[in-house]
């Protein structure tokens, strides 16, 4: 029983991190109808930015509250800028081209980032994973019985951050002027432009928000894993994408529910079956979902407009 509870907690904690990444996928897909393949790799770049900032701050300052806030701000801001640049120079010129070109570009950027960061030329870090500094001292937040169930402080933190951001996003999308513009662009960006909505700006800001979220999620992941490597973006990004599809891509609460589900399933597979099968589970679920309910749990399969 205690074991089950522990797996439940670990799974939820892992799921919240996937959720933050999945939110970025789902937002960009909602606005552009483009699967931003490079999303996970932008996250990876953000983690390296945080890593560099932590080192610049030094061993003492990086653990203070201000230090942690600064690390998160630098990583999220840097990623927002990176997302803006990618959108501006790679996706925007292709917006009116066939969808396939944008998809190929996204795959190309993802590949260039994840393998570019494996070089050890100049500032690039090289292929070997590095230990991520413990910027948040892991402490036991709640202990039940004789350490039967342990809840760590970072688990609570990431759950709170994820739920907070989800509520914030719902508010942004449904209660603000900008959110209304986003929904209009999502519905039909040409007509939205005719109605005086600055579509380019809306899309750029959406990209920046998504990329910033990814950086935050990446830092939480790195704190949990205590390591950072160039390929982390590919794997976390793929799983987050699977989570977004489970929930129905383009659907904000759906992404969170899908991510929590995926986190739980992975944790149970590791706990009760074999840990080596973990990476195959996500894709097995993806194929199953596409086969049974292609729109995901909450989404609908929209007929293509001609």
């Amino acid at each position: 029983m205690a074991q089950l509870l522990q797996h439940l907690i670990n799974g939820l904690a892992a799921g919240t991190i996937y959720a933050l990444v999945a939110l970025g996928y789902t937002m960009v897909y909602g606005v552009l109808k483009l699967i931003n393949f490079a999303h996970g790799d932008v996250m990876m770049v953000g983690v390296y930015m945080g890593y560099a900032t932590a080192f610049a701050l030094g061993r003492q300052t990086q653990k203070t509250f201000l230090g942690v806030v600064l690390i998160f701000l630098v990583a999220m801001g840097g990623c927002a800028l990176l997302g803006f640049l990618i959108e501006r120079f790679a996706y925007r010129p292709l917006r009116e081209k066939p969808r396939l070109t944008a998809l190929i570009t996204a795959i190309g950027i993802s590949f260039a980032l994840s393998y570019g960061f494996q070089l050890d030329i100049g500032f690039l870090p090289g292929a070997a994973p590095r230990a991520f500094p413990e910027i948040i001292q892991p402490t036991e937040w709640l202990v039940i019985g004789d350490r039967d169930v342990v809840v760590w402080n970072w688990q609570v933190m990431s759950l709170l951050i994820a739920v907070g951001l989800m509520v914030g996003l719902q508010w942004l999308v449904f209660k603000t002027r900008f959110g209304r513009a986003m929904r209009a662009v999502s519905y039909d960006h040409r007509v939205a432009a005719l109605m005086g909505i600055p579509t380019d700006r809306v899309i750029a800001v959406t990209f920046m928000i998504g990329s910033g979220l990814a950086a935050g999620a990446g830092l939480l992941y790195a704190i949990k894993d205590t390591s950072v490597s160039p390929l982390m973006g590919l794997y976390v990004g793929l799983k987050a994408f699977v989570a977004a599809v489970i929930g129905g891509i383009g659907h904000v609460p759906g992404a969170v529910v899908g991510a929590l589900l995926l986190g739980l399933v992975e944790e149970f597979v590791v706990g009760y079956a074999a840990s080596t099968w973990r990476d195959a589970v996500a894709f097995g679920i993806l194929i199953l979902v596409l086969l049974v309910k292609p729109g995901g749990l909450f989404g609908r399969v929209a007929a293509e407009k001609v």
């Binding site: 190929i104 570009t105 190309g108 950027i109 590949f111 260039a112 393998y115 494996q118 070089l119």
Partner: peptide
């Protein structure tokens, strides 16, 4: 490998 990615873009 990174060159392949950039080549695609």
């Amino acid at each position: 490998m990174p060159v392949y990615g950039l080549l695609l873009v």
